[in-house]
Amino acid sequence: MDVNMTYTTQEIWTWWLAIYLYFGGLGAATLAVTFLTDMYLKPDRGLVIWGAGAGVVLLALGSLMLFGHLLDKFAVINVLNPLVLFHKPDAWIAWGTQFIIWMMVWGILYALPYVRETDFPRKVPFIRGLIDQPFVIGIAHLVKRFRRAVGWLAVVNGVGVAVYTGLLLQSFPAVPLWHNPAVPLLFTISAFSTAMAFLLVVMYTLMHDQAHEHVRVLYERIDLVLIAAELVVLFSLYQYLKNGSESAVRSLELLWNDYGWVVGFIGFGLIAPFFLELKGVIQGWRSRVPILTASVLVLIGGYLLRHYFMYAGVYAYPW
């Protein structure tokens, strides 16, 4: 068949899906990181509450984006049902939805004892009423007893969500930009990198506790490694696509001719924070401003990555 091809980008999943992927990755990774920190590094009520809170809120917001765009909201019941995993084990959205739900459930449970110990929630009448219910107290006790188990359930689901955001895009074979193994890697790394950045921002602005110092340092180091890894993955992706199919090349052209991507995401979202954090790790900063700046940049870059990735997906249509 001699056919002509039209190369076009899609208009089906746009910014709202980028937000879903972003909040999903960010929220889930934040939750996982804080719980791991809490379990193995240093029990930290504030961090857990922040992590669980951010995880649940961001995932709720992200999921709302997706939900809001469903054509038939009623039929969402079909994916909320856990049996969907038997029914559609090959569909990443099915896994993603379940990961999100269970991550939220286990995340809230894990945080429950801490919440009961915290003042702030008690100021909200409804929450106070709830957390003082005898069965909630019972659950909190149980959670305390199986803290690691619950923590791990939440972490596994959280990691699942972060990985899923990349796997989802990877599952569209028509788009070479997405349909390659670098994508889940890229999205997972980015999720954790933005989570680190988010936690750094939280720690630098809301939790001034000196006791967090070594956690912060650790996060900065991890983030530096993650950014480096992200750059490496991105570089390999570039190399892979550069010699790929026509659609791949068109995607590259779209991305690498766009300031938002090159300057915004790669420049300000990766390279600038990399050097800021590099200096922080090697020499240290006297002020918290540079790391804060780096973190905010990473957070913005995280969204830009997903945003441009969605819009630069190129399909080839024959005629």
Binding site: Q10, I12, W13, L66, H69, L70, L71, D72, K73, F74, A75, V76, N78, V79, A91, I93, L168, S171, F172, P173, A174, Y315, A316, Y317
Partner: peptide, 16 residues
């Protein structure tokens, strides 16, 4: 009756 209209299929289909 099952479809919730998430459009993942539309994204996945290479043939519009």
């Amino acid at each position: 009756d099952l479809c919730m209209g998430c459009r993942a299929c539309a994204m996945a289909c290479p043939y519009q």
